[in-house]
């Protein structure tokens, strides 16, 4: 009876092995896709949804007017704030906190914000050792710049008066009506 051949001949095996080894050796010298983070950091597009910041307007005042829209739209309820009005007539957040352990970086808050205040930046380096440190308060969120959308100041379009801008001085407004006079 003829013995059935179940194994490949030895030379074929060794050849296959050498080919594999050669492929592996070749890859030792191929250009890496892997970026050796943190020595080298990959550039991210500006619309990359990372750490949330609160930006300022072109005049240097904080943009956030504490309208509560971001906290309302947030799907995981991670934003908490309390509105207050200062003597200038500007509304601002007395407290503003984001719980980054809950935040899913969806970007809904940035879409909802009517003053372009809250923005997501391409920064993900937010590790903390303690859970509580992931709750950022306003001091940790407010930045000095205008973020991704320079040039917009909400109060230049709103109708209310703030210090430095009287009623009627908004970009789309006329001077106020004289209410004590019935003449045309």
């Amino acid at each position: 009876m003829q013995k059935k051949r179940t194994n490949k001949p030895v030379p074929t095996l060794i050849l296959g092995l050498c080919r594999s080894l050669w492929t592996v050796l070749r890859h030792a010298f191929v250009k890496r896709e892997t970026v050796s983070y943190p020595e080298i950091k990959r550039p991210l597009p500006s619309r990359w949804r990372g750490r949330i910041v609160l930006t300022r307007d072109p005049d240097g005042e904080e943009r956030c007017v504490a309208c509560y829209l971001c906290s309302a739209v947030c799907p995981v309820d991670c934003i908490h704030l309390q509105a207050r009005q200062n003597d200038d007539g500007r509304r601002y957040p007395e407290t503003f906190s984001i719980d980054f352990s809950r935040c899913i970086f969806c970007g809904f808050c940035e879409e909802a914000c009517p003053t372009l205040a809250i923005q997501l930046t391409p920064d993900f380096e937010m590790c903390e050792r303690r859970h509580e440190s992931l709750i950022y308060n306003k001091e940790q969120l407010l930045i000095d710049g205008q973020g991704k959308y320079p040039g917009y100041n909400f109060y230049r379009h709103a109708g209310v008066a703030i210090s430095g801008k009287k009623i009627g001085a908004a970009e789309t407004d006329m001077s106020p009506v004289d209410r004590d006079n019935n003449l045309p």
Binding site: G159, A161, I167, G168, T172, D173, M174, S175, V177, R179
Partner: peptide, 21 residues
């Protein structure tokens, strides 16, 4: 066009007046 605006009155400590709206 442009919007007509009004100045507001001080109606006391209980009610805030914003006539533009």
């Amino acid at each position: 066009g442009r919007k007509r605006t009004f100045t507001n009155q001080d109606l006391g400590p209980l009610i805030h007046h914003e006539m533009n709206r």
